[in-house]
Amino acid sequence: MSQIMIKDALQQRELMTSGHLACPGCGGALAMRMVLKELGERTIVTMPACCWSVIAGPYPTASVQVPVYHTAFETGAAVASGIRAALDMRGDTDTTVMVWAGDGGTFDIGLQALSGAAERNENILYVCYDNEAYMNTGIQRSSATPWGAWTTTTPVAQPQANPKKDIMAIMAAHRIPYAATATPAYPTDLVAKVRRAKSVRGTRFLHILAPCPPGWKYADERSMELARLAVRARIFPMLEVEDGQHWRFTMDHPGDPVEPYVRAQGRFRHLDDAQIALVQERVDARWTELLGRVMN
């Protein structure tokens, strides 16, 4: 078929309500909506500090219709371990326990707890929606911020000097049964991975690229387009990793130039052609490295 008809690929149920406090065009909000559609009502979520601490609604409101436990920044995976243990003790092994954390809560402050939970192979689903900086606090760099990016703590005179942390490799090194990357721009791929993750026992990790209009500085309506550009340019490849060892791509990555993606965002506005060429070089190098993993 010619048009990619995806409406039947997604569950009709809505576990998220309008009136939440995400910015217009928020990739993280859309990601939650899609993930919950697939996970369904029998899901308990814990959220460390992140944009969703706000999006989920201030007391006494909630924008999702599943139980949510807001928790401290570094504790997502540990709280989830506790919830899981409690449910198991009461004989409920079916309910999905999900951590919903940003990149700061995953790559940085929450990495230790995540590593602990992954090492114990806790039966939880850990989702990192990655908007590549501390957006909720006003765009400060995290270890998920890409090289060359402006943030309020990596000003144009001294932009992000380090490459983005390779969280997938870190998670794979824990030999967890299932890890995958996704983005709401590809809903079918996303929900297929959620479905897969839901069916697996043990620690499951989903790394979701969540474009952020105010943080990346682009027009709201381009959120999905930017995510697609990132995938097509191999900046954010769509992957599945089983048991930390079996890497595979879930779609084609034509290898479009990174330039349109970079140029579309204000956070990269200061990069000149030579620097963009450097971004391309780094992306190419990572891709080659990744190909090595996928080939094995």
Binding site: T17, H20, L21, P24, G57, P60, T61, A62
Partner: peptide
């Protein structure tokens, strides 16, 4: 009681976010 600790009682539908646009 719900008022003793931060427990939600309702949805976010009270936020008419349409006024943002």
């Amino acid at each position: 009681e719900g008022k003793d600790l931060p427990v939600s009682r309702t949805t976010t539908l009270g936020n008419r976010t349409g006024s943002w646009k």
